[in-house]
């Protein structure tokens, strides 16, 4: 995807930045997001100006408790990610976590994660659960810690810097052989939440599993996402953020931008490569280039947003 020129500018960008950065950045102009090479954008001052004021940062799939060969020290890579956020020249006030905080839903894993998150300088953190966070028999470990914002429903909304955020849960109602599910109750709640909001309200929707079908044989999608999209299409700027697949996949459809984040823990294979979406083992020096975070900045109030992805490399 990257040509030689962008690779060169990426290299120069890596030299300039404490942790480096690589990926694609999206600038929103007139309701349409346009991809810009992130490395090219940060390599020059104009690019830095385009990157704008940081609105929020997305981290995902921290999988605290994972200890296999693909990354024996996920705590260390999460700490690196936290340092990357804390080291941003302009501190974002908000961070969202798109699920799989833990690997096995164990209390000790949640405790370690919370302790590490407390090292973030961001003042506000919002989460949604991943399916790895809800495997305990009573599905209570996640909700005991992060359920307050949603009164234990898991889905909720809030406003930040003029943007309306909608946090959704698509990991609690799996049907055998099926994709993630939002369910009628949650969809009705979204309809009520959006009712009366003007089309010009910027919307960010986030959930753990992709809210569009990326690869059905691996369950990379949400079976009843279409009724949700139908409700969102009238808005001038919609950003849909997910995790789950431990790699970046993006789609732009009308005024809607879909983006999945990298994991901070371990990469996963490209759709359909190998028997299933398990941990992908890569060379140790390659691993940091496949882990990272997504940051979203406001370029020009009230409309322009930029998505950029940074790696730990």
């Amino acid at each position: 995807m990257a040509d030689e020129k962008s690779l060169n500018s990426r290299r120069s960008a890596l030299k300039c930045m404490a942790f480096g950065g690589a990926g694609t950045l999206f600038a929103l102009a007139g309701g349409v997001l346009t991809p810009i090479e992130l490395a090219a954008a940060v390599a020059d001052n104009q690019g830095a100006a385009r990157a704008g004021k940081p609105l929020f940062v997305q981290i995902s799939d921290t999988h605290i408790g994972f200890n296999k060969e693909a990354n024996p020290d996920v705590n260390r890579t999460l700490m690196q990610t936290i340092s990357l956020v804390n080291g941003m020249s302009e501190q974002p006030r908000l961070i969202i976590h798109t699920g799989d905080i833990t690997h096995l839903s164990k209390p000790a894993e949640f405790d370690i994660a919370q302790q590490m998150f407390s090292g973030l300088r961001t003042t506000e953190m919002h989460t949604v659960p991943g399916e790895h966070d809800t495997t305990d028999a009573t599905v209570s470990e996640y909700f005991n810690r992060f359920g307050k914002a949603s009164r234990n429903k898991g889905y909720y909304s809030f406003d930040h810097a003029g943007v309306h955020f909608i946090a959704l849960v698509n990991v609690l109602q799996f049907k055998a052989g099926g994709l993630g599910t939002l369910g009628a109750e949650q969809l009705a709640w979204v309809a009520a939440d959006l009712k009366g909001r003007t089309d010009s309200t910027p919307i960010v929707v986030f959930a753990h599993m992709p809210l569009w079908t990326i690869y059905e044989p691996w369950g990379w999608g949400t079976g009843d996402s279409e009724p949700l999209m139908a409700q969102l299409r009238r808005f001038g700027s919609v950003t849909v953020l997910n995790g789950h697949i431990h790699q970046i996949v993006q789609k732009v459809e009308g005024n809607m931008t879909f983006h999945t984040a990298r994991s901070t823990a371990y990469p996963q294979p490209i759709a359909g490569v190998g028997p299933g979406p398990g941990p992908l083992k890569v060379a140790a020096d390659q691993l940091p280039t496949m882990l990272g975070l997504t940051s979203v900045s406001v370029v020009k109030h009230p409309w322009s947003q930029v998505l950029s992805d940074a790696t730990l490399a």
Partner: peptide, 12 residues
Amino acid sequence: YHFTCSIHPRMV
């Protein structure tokens, strides 16, 4: 008795 993997619901 039907069962699934709640992490990977395609597994049945």
